[in-house]
Design a protein around this nucleic acid. Structure first.
Length: 562
RNA sequence: UGGGGCGUAGCCAAGUGGUAAGGCAGCGGGCUUUGGUCCCGCCACUCGGUGGUUCGAAUCCAUCCGCCCCAGCCA
């Protein structure tokens, strides 16, 4: 992993540096990550998590984890549990500072009472659609509710009775008394509390009125003595309300700062759309390895380090942006490059018989796990008369620059010998190549010195007799289009080939013991993860995390386009 | 047509009056028992456009253009 984070700067850090220069907030830095438990976290949330916990770490400050659980009808403990797991998995520690907005319901209520007493809030009897009408439009000012000038006593009484459950859902709301003519719609007497006779996942039936985000959030930040309340751009318009409320209450006042949320190419990021993919059966669940959710990336085999590195390197700014998926791929390849043992796996086997190799004899060849990281050690690989190679590594009539196996041509089998293709055996019916008859040069075993000849191609292979069968799942972009959300019905852009399941894959015998949740490089293919749920000893299942870069495939693709 | 933001390479992004960092992608070459990695080189005479201020402007001013967000009793 690169160590760019400590050197990178961004506009948020610039603001914080300014604050520290003038000793604002006593030079403290205290952030918070405030998810609503109404869905699973995705990589966009990871960006926010990394910013909030990262900045706290950079300035020796603190970062709280706080659930913004103010809407019981949409939230659930299933989500809070998954969120806790995801943040923890990413490697962040909120220590003893796990909070819930619902912990503050009583304080929030008392603050509302104070606003009423100061004639800064009132109970409105208008119905939802009436409030909408009274709000006006983007260009026309709104008009004041007929209930706007009730007495403090009446407001206090009504608000208390709202809490006590005297009224039906939607019968009344508590509103801030600000300015119905404000060009900022958020200031046109925003709703602070609504009546919802709903059971809350933490407070149960204690409450039947629930605070709105715009009301609960600033006060929660204030109570926690947050210094920098970092959120996404769409809340920029809400900042005047955030500031108004805290000023109206005369309480500790954090600074809200907004940044642009992350968009990733070839996928969708909104909770609503991700939910649609799950509920529509387009994917197997929130943790489907094709999903951009934290749980999906984890199931796929991405490391927390690679995700953090990615988040650190994409930067933080206010311009809307679309980060290329290729950059995420780059980050995981870089992370696994030295970490992952490199082993042989033949995904689409082609049988090769080495005619001059003594039948029935097996020799063990030494093979290091990672030539660039000797610490990973080595293992023994059996070599025998019958091996499998990749179907793609043989062509009967190869093009110019193909330097793999072809009739009459030689290649090296990595860690073993140079072999020559003598004959091609085909299925009499279909004409399909079903076996290669080859010879080997016994003087070319790896490690022998002097090395005999140089050949252009080196192939991976597996000895047939000892091979371990496995299932391998190859993943590709979930969507064909770079920006699938451009179309109203984004599901039409789904990639029909985003998952390919290969069942007859042949692995070298050392892989028998591959443990769930571990990562390997399959030589010349990519990085693979032993599926933590589906893999069994004797029935191994691998997820492709990311392929290796493949310049041969690129050449082929460019040629095909011409 | 109200308000709030944002425009630096194909994609991110630094840059805060002194002459355009870095990464990804791409292209060319070297090395290579992974067509991987690694190494070397190329890739913005110009910062949305146009005027202006200045010895000097991506940075300041004016004006125009483009894109995003806001009319939930969601967050």
């Amino acid at each position: 992993m690169t160590d760019t984070n400590t050197m990178t700067t961004n506009f948020i850090k610039n603001i914080i540096n300014d604050h520290r220069r003038i000793n604002r907030f006593d030079s403290r830095v205290h952030t918070r990550f405030p998810p609503e438990p109404n869905g699973y976290l995705h990589i966009g949330h990871a960006k926010s998590i990394c910013i909030n916990f990262g900045i706290a770490g950079d300035y020796a400050g603190l970062c709280n984890l706080r659930f913004d659980d103010t809407n019981p009808t949409k939230e659930d403990v299933e989500y809070v549990e998954s969120i806790l797991e995801d943040v923890r998995w990413l490697g962040f520690d909120w220590q003893e500072r796990l909070f819930y907005a619902s912990d503050y319901f009583e304080e929030l209520y008392q603050c509302a009472v104070q606003l009423i007493k100061n004639e800064k809030a009132y109970v409105d009897d208008l119905k939802a659609d009436e409030i909408r009408e009274y709000r006006g439009t983007l260009t026309a000012p709104g008009k004041e509710s007929p209930y706007r000038n009730r007495s403090v006593e009446e407001n206090l009484d009504l608000f208390r009775r709202m809490r006590e459950g005297e009224f039906e859902d939607g019968a009344r709301v508590l509103r801030a008394k600000i300015d119905m003519a404000s060009p900022n719609l958020n200031l046109r007497d925003p709703v602070l509390y609504r009546i919802q006779h709903a059971r809350h996942h933490r407070t149960g039936d204690k409450w039947c009125i629930y605070p709105m985000y715009d009301y609960a959030h600033p006060i929660s930040d204030s109570l926690e003595k947050i210094t920098h309340s970092i959120c996404t751009l769409e809340f920029e318009d809400h900042r005047p309300l955030y500031d108004w409320l805290l000023d109206a209450l005369g309480v500790y006042h954090p600074q809200q700062i907004e940044f642009a949320r992350l968009n990733l190419s070839h996928t969708v990021m909104s909770k609503r759309k991700l939910r649609q993919l799950v509920e529509g059966g387009y994917v197997s669940g929130w943790d489907d390895p094709r999903m951009p959710t934290i749980s999906g990336l984890r199931r796929r085999g991405y490391t927390p380090e690679s995700i953090k590195d990615f988040c650190d390197r994409i930067g933080v700014a206010k311009a809307n942006s679309f980060v290329d998926r290729a950059f995420l791929d780059h980050c995981i390849r870089e992370d696994l490059h030295l970490k992952a043992p490199r082993v042989m796996a033949v995904l689409r086997p082609l049988r090769v018989v080495i005619e001059n190799y003594p039948e029935g004899s097996v020799e063990m060849l030494d093979a290091e796990y990672n030539a660039e990281n000797p610490e990973l050690g080595s293992r023994q690989m059996p070599f025998s008369q019958v091996v499998y190679i990749e179907q793609d590594d043989f062509m009967e009539d190869p093009p110019k620059k193909f330097f793999r196996l072809a009739p009459g041509r030689e290649v090296r089998l990595k860690h073993a010998y140079i072999i020559k293709c003598e004959r091609v055996v085909k299925d009499e019916q279909t004409g399909e190549v079903i076996e290669l008859r080859c010879t080997y040069d016994p003087d070319t075993r790896s490690g022998m010195s002097p090395d005999t000849r140089k050949v252009k191609g080196t192939l991976h292979w597996v000895s047939a007799e000892q091979a371990v069968k496995a299932e391998v799942r190859l993943y590709d972009h979930l969507f064909l289009k770079e920006h699938p959300e451009e179309d109203a019905n984004f599901t039409t852009n789904l990639n029909p080939n985003s998952l390919e399941v290969l069942t007859g894959c042949m692995l070298e015998p050392v892989m028998t013991g591959a443990e769930r949740g571990t990562r390997y490089q399959f030589l010349r293919h990519g990085y693979f993860f032993v599926d933590p749920l589906d893999s069994q000893t004797g029935a191994l299942v691998f997820n492709r995390i990311v392929s290796l870069k493949d310049s041969w495939a690129k050449i082929q693709k460019n040629k095909a386009q011409k």
